[in-house]
Simulated scan of single mutants.
Amino acid sequence: MPAQQPIGVFDSGYGGLTVFRSIAAQLPGYDYVYLGDNARAPYGNRSFSTIYQYTWECVQQLFKMGCPLVILACNTASAKALRNIQQLDLPNGDPTKRVLGVIRPTAEVIGSYSKTKQIGVLGTKGTVQSESYLIEINKFSPDVQVYQQACPLWVPLVENGEHNQPGADYFIKKYLDAVMAQSAGIDTLLLACTHYPLLQEKIEAYLPQHIKVVPQGDIIAASLADYLQRHPEMETRLSRTGTHRFFTTSDDTADFDKNASLFLGSEVKSEYLELS
């Protein structure tokens, strides 16, 4: 076994850093490798087969870097690639490796946030079209009614640094009005894209105070902590030297570092990774 066996965290770009931030805060001391596929982002509007191909390529890269456990900190990848990876690729490759997503852990608990049992899900076009949240939330909370809304312009706003600008308000309000028009009883809005926490302050400004806006970071971190407690055979494999490494498939690492720092809330120094 390699001396260092970090936890891998994958996202199509920057958004997964909001999940990584929560994971590293709740589970300090472990080694982590973050990989953003910025050269091919965004994933949200791509086909099922393309998203699966890209995600699996990046997961395999993290395996090569010594990660026995990879978190898909990306809703689109979790919706369109995780099932194939878990059910087909891992059993036929290395069944000792594990890949976990963000949809199931979120679906397990989100029903408890709502008093009215009506939840709005805000996500990318790919996540919404997959209906993964409709299916998964129904498994754990069949009494909860789920209303979905795709917000295709929110990720570009964030990735172009426009999320704090006045021009973003029009598109934030547009999608919020659309989801709230589906039911006046919605009292919980799930941010089912890891970019959206950067818009949370503006989102909350357009909503009544009784509506909860729920990002995923802390939910995923708590779920991972529980997973490691229940699976000591994996937990004992993980190395603990407190190392955090960041990789991007974009050759402009300076641009990645600048934008990634906004998501992480601290300075990032990344390395370029050419997929092989």
Rank of each mutant, 00 (worst) to 15 (best):
A184T: 02
L207H: 09
Q216A: 09
K174V: 02
Q200D: 10
N164E: 13
V146E: 04
Y175K: 12
Q209L: 01
L198E: 08
L157M: 03
E162S: 05
P215C: 05
P142I: 13
E204D: 13
D143K: 14
A192L: 04
L153W: 08
L191I: 09
E136Y: 03
F171Q: 08
T194D: 02
H163M: 10
L153P: 01
A178C: 04
K173L: 05
H210D: 11
D218I: 11
P215L: 05
L191W: 00
D218G: 09
E131Y: 04
Q148M: 11
E131W: 00
I135M: 08
P208Y: 14
Y206R: 11
I172G: 03
W154S: 00
L189D: 10
F140H: 15
N160Y: 11
C151D: 10
K212S: 13
P152C: 10
L190C: 12
D169E: 14
Q145I: 15
N164S: 14
A205E: 04
E204Q: 14
Y206P: 14
D187H: 12
C151L: 01
A178M: 08
P197F: 12
H195R: 01
I186G: 03
V146K: 04
N160T: 13
L153V: 00
W154I: 07
H163L: 09
N138I: 00
P208C: 12
V146A: 10
Y175S: 09
V144C: 15
E204V: 07
K202D: 12
L134I: 09
N160W: 09
N138Y: 07
W154L: 11
K139Y: 04
D218E: 15
I172L: 07
H210F: 05
K202I: 03
M180P: 15
P208S: 06
E159Q: 10
Q149K: 01
G167L: 08
E159C: 06
Y206D: 15
V146Y: 01
V158N: 14
Q200I: 09
A192H: 00
E201Y: 04
K202C: 05
E162H: 11
P208E: 09
L176D: 03
E131S: 12
E159Y: 12
A168G: 14
E136N: 10
L176C: 08
N160M: 03
K174M: 14
L199W: 05
W154D: 09
Y170M: 09
I186T: 06
L176I: 11
L198I: 10
V158W: 01
L157W: 00
Q216F: 01
D143G: 08
A168R: 13
N164F: 03
P156V: 01
V158H: 11
K174G: 01
A181V: 14
Q149H: 05
Q182I: 03
L199K: 10
I172H: 12
E162I: 06
E136R: 04
Q200T: 13
A184H: 02
P142E: 06
P197H: 13
E136I: 07
Q216D: 05
D218W: 14
A168K: 08
N160E: 15
P215K: 02
D169L: 07
D169F: 01
K212D: 04
I135F: 15
L189H: 06
